[in-house]
Amino acid sequence: MAIEVLIFYLLAGVAIAAAAGVVLARNPVHSAVSLVLSFVNVAAIYVMLRAEFLAVAQIIVYTGAIIVLVLFVLMLVQQQDLPEFHGGRPLRRAVGFLLGLALLAEVAAAILTRSLRGAPGSWTPEAVAAVGGNIQAIGRELYSVYMLPIQATALLLLAATIGALFLARPELIEERLAIARRLFTISLAHPRGVDPLQPVAELPAPQDGQLKLAGGDRALVMARSAEEFTEQPAWGEIRR
């Protein structure tokens, strides 16, 4: 047995055991610690698979950021309210394990009978070494072939940031939105005014000679300013 296989079994065994710990631990903090352990071992397996960059990304993003955030939230949430694992729902647990076993059997069958293989790619270890290593190879591929997806991902992260902000401080975002809406909408004519068919007496009192009869004895209300007839500003209007 080659040394790589031994190392793999070691890493994979710890990873799986730790993953099981995530599910089995009573205390969510223990779950999180188990998850970290599992992730670190998976990262080591990535290194075995010549994916150094992903291994580091896994550690920085998953363990360094995501799980830390989970711990953060765990500590902010009231500890006493955390529900127990064995919450008196044995049926659900049994069904869950059964489904898991069934899926495991199916996937194992699929893996063992697998014969479909795509055409091998051009990034052989030599080709990767020729451009300077895994990280350079990924960079080349990422910023040429996958230019658009990476931009979309950037957008997704931005949206997630704004979404998180909205979940945390809705009032802040709504304030900003209202300002933006007021500043950036372009409104066309929005008719709101005085009905000329109304009797003159019911029209607003003449202010500074603003109400008068035009040719044809038609009531003509000179409303040069919004203030005269509308209590509320028109949609999107800024009063001076």
Partner: peptide
């Protein structure tokens, strides 16, 4: 690696199915 992947996936799935704490489901 596929077996490792399957094992981790199914452990995760079982966790989602059986646990009640949102944070653990999330993990």
């Amino acid at each position: 690696f596929l077996f490792l992947s399957a094992a981790l996936f199914i452990i995760g799935m079982v966790g989602v199915l059986t646990r009640r704490n949102v944070l653990i489901i999330f993990m």
